[in-house]
Computed example of a mutant assay.
Amino acid sequence: MRVKSAETRATADHPAAVSPGLRERRRLQTRAEITDAALRLFAEGGVASTTVDDIAAAAGVSARTFFRYFATKEEAALPVHQDFNEAIAAGLPSVDPLGDVRDEVDRLYALTVLPYTDNDSPSAQRMLQVSQLIRKEPSLRSAQVRQTVERTEDLMAALSAKFGPERADQMELRLAIDISGAVARAALDTWVGLLEAGKAADLAEIYGQARAFAR
């Protein structure tokens, strides 16, 4: 990372001075700064006219550092989908291999909406900003679709291994993932639409209604 030299010196002088927690916070901060720069530039001038170099310069990092965090400029504006992946990955160890496949997948996807249940949180505000841009920018919508497809395939493989071949019927597992993903997306889209219209919106309540309807 770009703070490597500073961290290396601090660790050499004081081995306990830099903890993994600090390094992770710095990583997340750098990623957030790149995303904030991308969102701001995209909102001001559009995706097509904004380059990776523009984003890197606005974030105060090099293009090389940019590519340590994101593969494309579009991905830099979609951190919420990386957050989805990380939430699902964090929840995978808690999946009960003997549990009901539909229920376990449903609980796994419920983790993806938790960061946005506080409307005033930075995560929720960023979700609103990203959603507004996606509606205006076809390239961001395409990137979102690609990420969703990749996440589905990765999750299929992970859950197939978790449940084992004797319980992981591929069609049922795929349907469980698609249904739970659609419920999460519908709840988030409804929540975003209400907030944009200046109306009260409780994501936890909306998501609970969506889950109940899907069941």
Rank of each mutant, 00 (worst) to 15 (best):
N119T: 11
A6M: 12
L188I: 14
K4N: 13
V113Y: 00
K136D: 13
A184L: 04
T30N: 02
R31S: 05
R151G: 00
Y69R: 05
A87V: 06
F67P: 02
R185H: 07
V183A: 06
A90F: 07
A87N: 08
F67M: 01
A32L: 02
A161C: 09
G60M: 04
H14M: 04
A76D: 09
R211H: 06
D13M: 05
A12M: 14
A37D: 11
N85D: 15
G60F: 08
A161K: 14
R68C: 03
L108H: 14
E137W: 01
A90C: 10
V192R: 02
E153R: 01
L111K: 15
D120V: 12
A63D: 02
S62K: 06
K199V: 05
K4P: 10
P165H: 03
Q209P: 10
A197D: 13
R26P: 13
I55W: 04
A56I: 07
T30K: 03
L173Q: 07
P115M: 15
A110Q: 07
F163K: 11
V149Q: 07
A6G: 13
V113A: 07
F84D: 14
R211A: 06
T35N: 01
E166C: 05
A176Y: 00
L92H: 09
L203Q: 01
L159V: 10
G198S: 11
R23K: 12
K162L: 02
T8A: 02
N85V: 15
A38V: 02
A110K: 08
A32P: 04
R31P: 10
D189F: 09
A201G: 11
L173K: 00
P15W: 00
E24D: 11
Q125Y: 09
E166T: 11
F70D: 03
A17S: 01
A12I: 14
A77R: 07
A58C: 08
A197W: 10
Q125A: 11
G208N: 14
R211C: 09
Q144F: 08
Q82G: 07
W191V: 13
E74Q: 03
Y109N: 12
V105K: 13
A89T: 10
R185W: 09
R68D: 03
A57E: 13
R27V: 02
V52T: 15
R167W: 02
E44W: 11
T65C: 02
L114H: 05
A76M: 10
P79N: 06
A77N: 04
E44K: 14
A48Y: 12
Y69N: 01
P115W: 14
I55P: 05
T50I: 07
R146L: 09
E153H: 03
D13C: 05
G46P: 08
K73I: 06
T51I: 06
F163V: 11
R25D: 04
A197N: 07
R9S: 11
E33Y: 09
A201T: 14
D96V: 07
T50Y: 08
D103M: 10
R26F: 03
A176W: 00
L78K: 13
A6L: 13
P93I: 06
A71D: 03
D106C: 03
P115N: 15
V113M: 03
R135H: 09
D36H: 04
A186M: 08
G99I: 08
L159E: 10
